[in-house]
């Protein structure tokens, strides 16, 4: 579990905010507004995009070629957001996303990165022993599946398009989206079975 911030860090934030406000650089109100906006982003967006891609071939194509446009097509504001790349899982290839250098994450469509994604253990191990990390979390992939680790090091942000589970023929988008977890969108899991 992530430790709570130290008292000296809380005090430093207060002093920095006060100094920035005194200089007219920021206001508490604009920070609060920004925070409220950021809080709204959630993996439900990514899940809706995946469910639509499972049912709509044209949207699937858009998602795979221009993730940012695909997010905007779902009503998500991507203004100022980095480009979004989407990686398609297949019966022979499974993608797993990590950022070994910091914590790059497709926040516009998944929300805040979870603590485990930012942890030293995940950042160092996912790139070296991805199958062990996946196995610890209950996902054992056969040798016939290539595990492709995607180290998110630069200007793109990456989301996984998981495979559609069997037995979901005829399901509508909302029901399909309920199978798409945040973990599946990062690649530490597959979509839930029907």
């Amino acid at each position: 579990m992530a430790a709570p911030p130290r008292p000296e860090s809380l005090a430093l934030l207060d002093r920095l905010m006060a100094a920035l406000e005194a200089k007219g650089i920021v206001t508490e109100a604009e920070i609060a507004e920004r925070q409220a906006n950021t809080d709204k982003a959630s993996p439900e967006t990514g899940a809706r995009m995946v469910a639509k891609a499972w049912t709509d071939p044209a949207y699937r194509q858009l998602l795979l070629t221009d993730g940012k446009a695909a997010a905007e097509a779902m009503g998500v504001s991507m203004a100022g957001a980095p480009p979004l790349g989407v990686l398609e899982n297949t019966p022979t290839r499974h993608h797993l996303v990590v950022c070994t250098l910091c914590s790059c994450y497709p926040r516009a469509v998944l929300g805040y990165p979870p603590n485990w994604y930012k942890s030293f253990a995940y950042r160092s191990r996912a790139v070296r022993e991805p199958r062990a990390v996946l196995a610890e979390w209950g996902l054992n992939l056969p040798d016939s599946v290539e595990v492709r680790v995607v180290d998110s090091t630069a200007d793109y942000r990456w989301m996984v398009l998981p495979m559609r589970p069997a037995g979901t023929e005829g399901w509508d988008e909302a029901r399909l989206a309920s199978l798409v977890t945040r973990d599946a969108l990062v690649g530490v899991a597959v979509a839930k079975p029907a």
Binding site: M1, A2, P114, N115, W116, S119, F120, A121, Y122, R123, S124, R125, A126, R128, E129, V133, E136, W137
Partner: peptide, 9 residues
């Protein structure tokens, strides 16, 4: 970190 489990935090 080779032997550090990734906590489900």
């Amino acid at each position: 970190f080779h032997c550090t489990p990734v906590e489900h935090d």
